[in-house]
């Protein structure tokens, strides 16, 4: 069976979620691999969400926010812009390809751009293959392992 990536999309309420909505109301066709979770701002994206999604079985995480300067909360997207590279470093440390995490700017009017971003990112994750985590990295009982050591 072909590999169908499962991707988590964290979209900001004001730009990207509306942009995704526009792609939907405009009946644009794009891969169904992105599962979206709405947050108020890309600044709300806790790196923990990304790590948790990958633990839970996501093959990639797409974070979308307003274009720089257009943030509904003035500067939330800049905070996201700083957090994502740090998270990528963290992923590298875990042995996860940082290309599995992507930050994109999609405005409320860019339904077409949302479609392109999703299509391209899905193809990239498909090429990277399924995310396989070592058993120890995100095992259910990490505390016991720690205590035993």
């Amino acid at each position: 069976m072909d590999f169908e990536p499962k991707i988590l999309g964290l979209l900001c309420n004001w730009c990207s979620y509306t942009g995704a909505d526009l792609a939907g109301t405009a009946r644009m066709k794009y891969p169904p691999n992105v599962y979206t979770v709405r947050v108020m701002c890309s600044g709300r994206v806790d790196p923990g969400f990304i790590l948790d999604a990958m633990r839970a079985g996501a093959d990639g995480v797409l974070v979308c926010g307003c274009h720089p300067g257009d943030c509904h909360y003035v500067e939330g997207n800049y905070k996201c812009l700083r957090r994502i590279p740090l998270t990528k470093k963290l992923l590298e440390g875990f042995g996860i390809d940082p290309r599995r995490l992507r930050l994109e700017w999609v405005s409320a009017s860019e339904g077409g751009r949302f479609k392109e971003v999703v299509t391209e990112f899905t193809e990239q994750i498909r090429a990277l293959g399924p995310l396989k985590l070592n058993d120890w990295a995100f095992a259910e009982q990490p505390l016991e392992v720690h205590e035993a050591a």
Binding site: K6, L8, Y35, V37, V39, M40, G43, R44, D46, G48
Partner: peptide, 30 residues
Amino acid sequence: CGTCAAACPSGAITARHFTDDQIYAQIEAI
């Protein structure tokens, strides 16, 4: 906006209606 909630190192800040628990639950469900 919840930027503070994402940054709080001790998890003391609750972004109401977009709490960590709610978002983790969504991720879990997906």
